[in-house]
Design a protein around this nucleic acid. Sequence first.
DNA 1: TGTACATCAGTGAACGCGCGTTCACTGATGTAC
DNA 2: TGTACATCAGTGAACGCGCGTTCACTGATGTAC
Lengths: 212, 212
Amino acid sequence: VSEVAGIPLPRRPRARRGEGDRLRAEILAATERLLVETGDADRVSIRAVADAVGVTPPSIYLHFSDKSELLLVVCESRFAQFDRILLEAGGSAADPLVALRRKGRAYVQFGIENPEHYRLLFMVRNAGDRTFEEMPAAAAAFGHLVDDVSACMGAGAFSRADPQLVATGIWTGMHGLTSLLISAPAFPWPDLDTMVDHVIDVQVRGLAPPAS
Amino acid sequence: VSEVAGIPLPRRPRARRGEGDRLRAEILAATERLLVETGDADRVSIRAVADAVGVTPPSIYLHFSDKSELLLVVCESRFAQFDRILLEAGGSAADPLVALRRKGRAYVQFGIENPEHYRLLFMVRNAGDRTFEEMPAAAAAFGHLVDDVSACMGAGAFSRADPQLVATGIWTGMHGLTSLLISAPAFPWPDLDTMVDHVIDVQVRGLAPPAS
DNA sequence: TGTACATCAGTGAACGCGCGTTCACTGATGTAC
DNA sequence: TGTACATCAGTGAACGCGCGTTCACTGATGTAC
């Protein structure tokens, strides 16, 4: 949609010398915006992004070698944002288990509020082919979860075990709920808060040390 | 690929009068086979299915109104098969908790062995827009899980609670592990069996009645 | 201060591709007489 | 038993679409002299 009723939409003004990176930032912003607006990653095409920025498709290639690089960069920035959100959700809680519970709720909430971003991060084919080396922000986010799990073990809230294994298990647990809420909206879901609390409670009880 | 080196591939013989349903069955079989072989639902196009059957694309429309109907029917038949596999996995175990554990392992195994079918059932956009009314096989499969959960409560393995809620929680738990194994193969996974057993154990402990 | 020139942020048109779907048709098969 | 005919399982060609990507180019901007 580069014109309406024959009247071309305003082209975005050309960047000045040395400010080529401005377009790069605008492309990234438009890509994220399109993901949210259309709610469909398949509709985020190079052409759609170019249109949203007010530029022709080839200009994208001045800043990204191809479509997959563009998506990779978006993916990394969303991981970083996701990580920040979880960090904030944990907040100032002194009890590591309280912090972890809050993060669990925030995890699900992020997925519900940003389903297309969540899909991009965890559900799309080939997204998971990238290793942690290629995705430092993702590695950092998972590292924080491992730290939280270790803290819970230190505080006696969880029985001692391999923190990596336990963290992975918690991740899969929260992901299962989040991803199904996104991809199976027609399922007869129980009340959302009840559901989230139930899933978190079961995990926490399952990881707690045996009552002595 | 309807020909190789200029030599047309053998056309499948035309069905006799009244045997038109034969093609329908062949289309369904070819679709399922393509999902497994290509490992990519995007490559299962009407044209690819027609080619695999040895028929021209328009013939598909003699048996299915459009692509989404074809996929819906495949989806249902896979749900029925999935349900059968889980039923067999539970087998003759007298203890309902033992049966449920076995089904949990079988669930993950099905996903790993049939990633594209699993994607189609649970991970693809719009697949989850269908209600249980439209997908009786899916409803039946979930109903069996609810029954199993009730049996575990009856046997005292789980503390009493809403079986629907608990079943949904178990489903999301197993789905989380399965779907991430599929879509995040580059993640540094712990040993598979260890992982599966851990996830199941945490759930079972979390649902068990408080030690008295 | 003036001007030729290199730079660089973009453009415009086209490429070939595979897709879902439609449409008018063909030709073997079975049936009625 | 023979033949005209209706049926029906398919075909062949084309439609319009949006896609990622390439290529030769333009024209404003800044710079060197």
